[in-house]
């Protein structure tokens, strides 16, 4: 599972051009080259079109509004918080799945990946039923602690974590499976506890995989729409993240929506490019 996880964003970041050229001049079978180019064009064309049709002249004006930056800041804060939360519980979960034996482990792994295939809106409804004011858990949170999660920034973080964490878990679990368990075993035979071995040996060993998973999760959280708008609603400055702002702007002012999309695109590219070195070591 690490392979696709690590290579895909690497591809987005653009592999080293030198390699591609060298291989290109040698023998690349046409049956592979043509579909590959078609795939690349298919992925890039919509993004290029966004750039072509962008209202460049009005762009400064479009981006001058405080709402845009409010939404962007909220998006960055929430996506980062969701990633940290995913790391906090996702890495141990991945370790559990990769390094321990327990009945029904296959089922648990399938359930962990469920949010990957679940339509995010369904995830949002499920979150409402769990953590809503009247939800299975939410009603106790409300009556005991007076905490309500829907319509709050915390709600946004939860929704994003729900959708993004599986990316991290899958990526880290794959890395763990690929990592040699004998290093940990050696550490434990030398007297380290299993937790110390995890902290001092395993974690540094799988760090690139963790980083890769974290970036994937962050990117997914940044783009989260369905679960967020369903669970946390839409209120500027509190729960209106960039994707929500883009969607609502699209309804009455497509130019503004394109401008917002450009900002989101630029941020994503900047982050992915900035982390490319890590990616390379990961793969």
């Amino acid at each position: 599972m690490t392979k696709p996880a690590t290579t895909t964003p690497g591809g987005v970041g653009g592999g080293p051009r030198r390699t591609r050229l060298r291989r290109g001049t040698r023998a690349v079978p046409v049956p592979l080259l043509l579909p590959a180019l078609a795939g690349l064009a298919f992925l890039l064309l919509p993004l290029v079109s966004l750039l072509v049709r962008a209202p460049w002249r009005d762009l400064p004006e479009q981006l001058a509004s405080a709402e845009v930056w409010q939404a962007l800041r909220l998006s960055l804060v929430c996506a980062t918080s969701a990633t940290l939360l995913s790391l906090l519980v996702g890495v141990p979960l991945a370790w559990l799945l990769a390094r321990t034996e327990f009945p029904g482990r296959g089922l648990v792994r399938a359930l962990v990946t469920l949010p990957l295939v679940l339509p995010p809106v369904v995830g949002g409804v499920a979150l409402l039923l769990a953590f809503g004011r009247n939800g299975v858990v939410g009603q106790w949170l409300d009556s005991w602690f007076g905490i309500t999660l829907p319509f709050t920034t915390t709600g946004v973080v939860l929704a994003e974590t729900f959708v993004a964490m599986p990316f991290l878990v899958i990526s880290v679990e794959g890395t763990l499976r690929a990592a040699d368990p004998r290093y940990e075993e050696a550490a434990t035979t030398l007297g380290a506890s299993r937790f110390t071995a995890f902290r001092r040996v395993t974690l540094p060993l799988i760090a690139p995989g963790v980083a890769a998973g974290a970036v994937l999760a962050w990117a997914r959280a940044l783009g989260e729409f369905g679960a967020t708008i369903t669970f946390a609603g839409n209120f500027p400055g509190r729960t209106q993240t960039m994707p929500l702002a883009v969607y609502l702007a699209l309804q009455y002012d497509p130019a503004a929506a394109i401008a917002l999309s450009l900002v989101l695109l630029a941020v994503s590219i900047a982050v992915l490019a900035g982390l490319r070195d890590r990616w390379m070591t990961a793969s």
Binding site: L128, L129, N134, F151, I229, T230, N234, T239, L248
Partner: peptide
């Protein structure tokens, strides 16, 4: 607390 994207979502929040 929220500006919903359509009328049915607004109603759903009350229903739930």
């Amino acid at each position: 607390v929220s500006y919903e994207q359509d009328v049915k979502s607004a109603l759903t929040k009350v229903e739930l």
